[in-house]
């Protein structure tokens, strides 16, 4: 329907790095934010011109599926161990590689807490992305360390109470480490938050490129089926219940990181 002399220009489609699966939708549930988070990461990589140098390290969880869908070199590690794998990849490759992990919240801070904490202690020059959907999505919505108080899961049928502990705030936790250069928390629930989160991702990659230390971005994602909500309700829930317990923003940005970010971006 275009007029003669008018060219169609793609504003937003699938990222180039997303492998086309002609006959299949992405194998995630309707309303799941994990592919959105992956899109933000891929766009950031493209904008930083870091695609050729990128190595993705995937854990176990719903994000497991990204291994088959993204046109990047990748390594799949055992449940919770991507920081270990990524540390070794970064140290062995030596060059100007951008090594990042994609982990769920359970993968990152429950089973993988030891690996994460010790990667931070070693000040590994890697970037860790934690897709936080506030429960164990793959196994059917059980309590995770990041489940907000009051949230019903299949192992806390009456809602999480302080008897089950309190949700862990990972970027705040990692910010106490001397070897951590950058931590932030973003969300995927609105266009504005999406853009902000992409900014955080770019800063995290930039911090890695100038070898400032470990960088970490948490992304709050909706998980409609396991929250027993419609996708739209899950956005509201994210806004009203999850974000108040998990404040968005940057928690650590070591001196100069922002300045160097601009440089690295250019």
């Amino acid at each position: 329907m275009t007029d003669i002399g008018v060219k169609k220009e793609l504003v937003a489609g699938r990222p180039d790095l997303w492998l086309r699966m002609e006959n299949n939708p992405i194998p995630s549930c309707p309303g799941c934010h994990e592919p959105t988070a992956m899109r933000a990461i891929l766009e950031a990589l493209e904008e930083l011109d870091a695609v050729g140098d990128a190595v993705m390290v995937v854990g176990v969880g719903c994000s497991f599926a990204f291994q088959s869908m993204v046109d990047l070199d990748y390594l799949v590690c055992a449940h919770g161990r991507p920081p270990d794998g990524a540390s070794a990849v970064k140290r062995v490759l030596k060059g100007d590689h951008v090594v990042f992990t994609i982990q769920g919240d359970g993968d990152c801070i429950a089973i993988g807490a030891g690996a994460l904490i010790n990667a931070a202690a070693r000040a590994e020059k890697i970037t860790i992305f934690m897709l936080n959907n506030a429960n164990y999505g793959t196994t059917g919505g059980q309590l995770a360390p990041t489940t907000p108080l009051g949230h019903v899961t299949s192992t806390t049928p009456g809602g999480r109470t302080p008897a089950h502990g309190y949700p862990v705030r990972v970027p705040e936790l990692l910010a106490t480490f001397q070897g951590v250069a950058y931590t932030a928390r973003g969300a995927m629930n609105s266009p504005a938050n999406y853009q902000k989160t992409k900014g955080y991702i770019k800063k995290a990659f930039a911090a890695q490129r100038v070898s400032l230390g470990l960088s970490f971005v948490e992304m709050l994602c909706a998980c409609p089926p396991n929250w027993h909500m419609t996708p739209l309700d899950s956005l509201k829930w994210l806004e009203q219940t999850v974000i108040p317990q998990f404040p968005l923003g940057e928690f650590k940005d070591v001196q100069g990181a922002s300045g160097k970010t601009q440089e690295a971006t250019r």
């Binding site: 089973i111 196994t139 059917g140 059980q142 309590l143 299949s154 192992t155 049928p157």
Partner: peptide, 16 residues
């Protein structure tokens, strides 16, 4: 317990 398929029903039963 810790969630893992295919034993989730056991963990969830005890949780309940």
């Amino acid at each position: 317990g810790y969630p893992i398929t295919p034993q989730n029903e056991i963990t969830e039963w005890f949780a309940r």
